[in-house]
Computed example of a mutant assay.
Amino acid sequence: MTKPISYKRDRYPPPIIAHAVWLYFRFSLSLRLVEEMLLERGVVVSYATVRRWAIKFGPEYTRRIKRKRPSRHDIWHLDEVVSIAGQKHWLWRAVDQDGYVLDEIVQTRRDTEAAKRLPKRLLKKQGCPPRRMSADKLVSYTAARRQILPRTEHRSRMSLNNRAENSHLPLRRRERAMQGFRSPRKLQSFTSVFSAVRNLFVPLRCRRSALATHLHRLAAMAEWKSAACVPA
């Protein structure tokens, strides 16, 4: 059983901390804007404290969020994007057919060894191989798939990987709002929480009616509060 989160040394109530962390990771808000929004609600807290909460509690919350159940019928869309963090780094990302972010790894290389690391982690995390793997025409993916997922169908037409390309956009917008990431470690830490929060609150593509979206968000907020160990 997962131990409850301890707020023992924090003088602010857990609901305020959970709300601040939610604002920061759910929306394209700077730390100072989160500070201002909390002030409007009568909560006086510095942006430095919001940063500390995000670093300390963000990973703790997301570890308690339920992941989407994997299936052998899933399609993994793999892609990589350039991110400058001191030097050129590549953020390798995988999403499924619904746009759900499965995993992300920051790496300095773009070769076969780097390409093998992502499907290896995915196979361990998901517990079963996908029905199909879709990627761009990078040769490293072909070699990685041959060694890690030899029985999985591999398609490399660019048009088939639009799902992965589109999934980069929210993170790219957030990166611009933050004026980039200062280090690979911070990039890895931020994306792991950012994507988990987005997975929780953004409805799957098959559930886009107004009522379904509304109900999904209510359920997501209830799960977020449960993960943060605060009353609903």
Rank of each mutant, 00 (worst) to 15 (best):
L215A: 06
I84F: 12
L204R: 15
R157Q: 07
R32L: 05
F27L: 11
C206W: 15
Y7D: 08
L204T: 15
A94G: 04
V43P: 00
V106P: 08
C206D: 15
Y61L: 10
E36V: 09
L160N: 11
L218T: 09
I75F: 11
Q107K: 05
L91Q: 04
R198D: 12
K120E: 13
E113I: 10
K88P: 02
I148T: 03
E80Q: 09
A114M: 03
D111I: 01
R145C: 05
S167A: 15
K3A: 15
C229G: 07
L78N: 01
D111K: 03
R207L: 12
V193I: 10
H77K: 05
K116Q: 00
R69Y: 09
S189V: 04
R121G: 10
T152I: 05
F57R: 11
Y141E: 02
P4T: 14
L160R: 13
R121L: 11
H168N: 10
L118R: 04
P170C: 04
L118G: 07
D79M: 08
P130I: 09
L169M: 15
Y47D: 11
E35W: 09
A219D: 04
K120G: 09
E80N: 03
Q179K: 15
M158E: 13
R93A: 04
F201P: 04
E60H: 04
S167N: 10
H77I: 03
L29A: 02
I16Y: 13
S159F: 08
R205I: 11
Q97R: 10
R176H: 14
L169G: 03
E153A: 10
R198Q: 13
E175C: 12
R32F: 06
P4S: 10
L31D: 08
K66G: 02
P129S: 10
F190C: 11
G58V: 01
F201K: 06
Y141C: 00
D111G: 03
E104A: 12
L160A: 12
A85T: 14
Y7T: 08
D111T: 00
P14V: 11
V34P: 06
R173F: 08
A228L: 13
R176P: 06
W92P: 02
H216C: 07
R151L: 14
A210P: 14
A135M: 03
A143L: 01
R174S: 08
L118T: 02
Q188I: 02
I148D: 05
F27G: 00
R146L: 03
L169D: 09
